[in-house]
Amino acid sequence: MSGVFGALLESRDWLLADGAVGTNLFRMGLEPGEAPELWNATDPGRVRALHEGWVGAGCDIFLTNSFGANASRLARHDAEDRVYDLNRRAAEIAREVADAAGRPVAVGGSIGPTGEGVGPGGSLDASAAEAMFGEQARGLRDGGADLVWIETFSAPAEFEAAVRAAAAAGLPWCGTMSFDTNGRTMAGLDVAGFAALVAGLPAPPLAFGANCGVGASDLVRSLIGLAGAAPGAALIAKANAGVPKFVSGRILYDGTPELMARYALLARDAGARIIGGCCGSTPAHLGAMRVALESRPRGAAPDLAAITGALGPLSPAETGPGTGS
């Protein structure tokens, strides 16, 4: 492996990734319906402050503010002609923070789904999706991202298009899919199918795994399934901070830093090499996770009873370990 992320992954038992971008930018003043990626141009100071929070919490890798910076999503804000510039600026801001950290910290160039159906029956064919992701990847590369981080995907054809775009830009990649309460993505792919998809790609990942979904219990269950389907793989776990709840017109997450610290230990014991948070997770959550990982030795791989005892019930409890059965 080359680059700072590869060197960290080779030299360390686990790495700490970052937490939520959108959730925290809303706390910092982002308005509902506003594209967070536009802040890379209009309010870079607050984007920089979020990245600095991840570094201060002890993260080894954090992601750029570019999740939705593709032409399809930016068209909703009349900004589809700004894809390259917004991605390049996102990576530049992140690069500045990482380089000032005083220790090795990697920058992952975040690429999320287009929001369109990709492949047969969808509104985009795979080549069009690849072109969209390619514009992002080139901007992230030119801004200084160490790798492309493909996250929160559901459909195999769209995921493959993003991987091809990363490879064409000359960047290594990591990737995660989001699994629901039945252990499947919204497109119906289970963790065994995801592992098989990754194994068949011409450009292999540095690491892959699961993010978002429901709560921490469900994500660790998916991780157990991935570890069984891809033994020896470098796996990623990025769970939401608890279970989402709709309160007074807003989605809130009930996971405390203490719960996320327990999740981090279980994720490591289940086989994750890169452990972070997703929706609702703040630098305070990540700081607690770092302390737990540094102070507690590795344990045995957890079973479902250990997971639910530490993190709360599965949704639904009868679903098997990430298999959708």
Rank of each mutant, 00 (worst) to 15 (best):
residue 218 D to W: 08
residue 2 S to A: 03
residue 203 A to T: 15
residue 301 A to V: 13
residue 264 A to N: 04
residue 42 T to M: 05
residue 193 G to L: 11
residue 216 A to M: 05
residue 55 V to N: 07
residue 75 A to M: 05
residue 316 P to K: 10
residue 140 L to M: 02
residue 72 S to L: 05
residue 274 I to Y: 04
residue 163 V to H: 06
residue 188 G to C: 11
residue 30 L to P: 12
residue 196 A to P: 11
residue 192 A to V: 05
residue 69 A to R: 04
residue 38 L to N: 08
residue 137 A to T: 14
residue 73 R to F: 11
residue 219 L to V: 07
residue 22 G to T: 12
residue 127 S to Q: 03
residue 68 G to V: 11
residue 102 G to D: 06
residue 27 R to A: 08
residue 306 A to I: 01
residue 303 D to W: 12
residue 1 M to W: 11
residue 120 P to A: 05
residue 25 L to E: 03
residue 291 V to Q: 09
residue 211 N to P: 13
residue 263 Y to N: 07
residue 228 G to W: 04
residue 89 R to Y: 01
residue 315 S to W: 14
residue 214 V to T: 01
residue 202 P to S: 03
residue 8 L to F: 02
residue 206 L to H: 13
residue 47 V to Q: 11
residue 96 E to F: 06
residue 161 A to E: 14
residue 167 A to K: 03
residue 47 V to S: 15
residue 142 D to G: 03
residue 141 R to D: 05
residue 242 G to K: 04
residue 205 P to Q: 05
residue 216 A to I: 08
residue 110 S to Q: 09
residue 228 G to K: 08
residue 177 M to H: 15
residue 72 S to E: 02
residue 203 A to P: 13
residue 97 V to N: 00
residue 130 E to W: 15
residue 269 D to H: 10
residue 8 L to W: 04
residue 320 G to T: 04
residue 128 A to F: 14
residue 40 N to Q: 10
residue 15 L to S: 00
residue 143 G to D: 01
residue 142 D to T: 02
residue 233 A to P: 14
residue 242 G to Q: 07
residue 307 I to E: 05
residue 88 R to T: 00
residue 57 A to Y: 10
residue 245 K to P: 00
residue 104 P to M: 14
residue 11 S to D: 14
residue 199 A to I: 10
residue 24 N to I: 02
residue 204 P to R: 04
residue 155 A to K: 05
residue 145 A to N: 02
residue 229 A to T: 12
residue 282 T to F: 15
residue 239 A to W: 10
residue 33 G to Q: 14
residue 84 Y to M: 04
residue 124 L to H: 12
residue 139 G to C: 08
